[in-house]
């Protein structure tokens, strides 16, 4: 079938089978490989994307369900010039990245949280990333990175 979606703020059209997951559509037909497959059963969160602004596991969404809707993947998080945004920079600075396989999903989970709740507590941050497994970091530096981004965004807003 022919899919049309608003992907990372661009209208895209692609021909692909009608019975595949959004994850497969993104990776194999749209060549956006930043979205990772870790379990294919909705348990690890490595394939997290934003669907109409909501965090979802793209392995648990049929591509057909995403048709004509807005999808943001990790490739759509950076600044227009391709450089990392503030949350991505915080992930680098606070050591939130080790093997990096969970990182795209974690960053999207962080963005989804901060859009919803700009001043989360550490517990709220932990809850917001609870569907994103990480085997390397023990999560602490990821929580640090999200917390620091929330603080710096607040400060920026205050100055604006």
């Amino acid at each position: 079938m022919k899919y049309s979606l608003l992907l990372n703020n661009q209208r895209v059209e692609v021909e692909a089978p009608g019975d595949i997951s959004l994850l497969k559509l993104l990776r194999e037909y749209l060549h956006l490989t930043g979205t990772k497959e870790g379990c294919d059963v909705g348990e690890c969160g490595a394939c997290s994307v934003l669907l109409d602004g909501k965090l979802v596991n793209s392995c648990m969404v049929l591509a057909a369900q995403a048709a004509d809707r807005e999808v943001i993947t990790i490739e759509g998080v950076c600044l227009p010039d391709g450089s990392p945004n503030d949350l991505q920079q915080a992930f680098i600075r606070y050591g939130a990245v080790q093997c990096g396989f969970c990182t795209p999903g974690m960053i999207l989970a962080g963005e989804a949280l901060l859009a919803d709740n700009p001043q989360p507590t550490r517990t709220e941050i932990r809850e917001a990333i609870a569907g994103n497994l990480c085997r390397c970091t023990g999560y602490q530096q990821i929580v640090d990175a999200i917390e620091q981004t929330s603080l710096s965004r607040k400060e920026k807003k205050g100055h604006a």
């Binding site: 956006l32 490989t33 998080v77």
Partner: peptide, 19 residues
């Protein structure tokens, strides 16, 4: 110091074998 490979990982451009 920043990890030498962190940038490509946060951008989603790091190439793992499945990619």
């Amino acid at each position: 110091a920043d990890r030498v490979d962190a940038l490509e990982k946060v951008l989603g451009s790091a190439m793992y074998i499945a990619d």
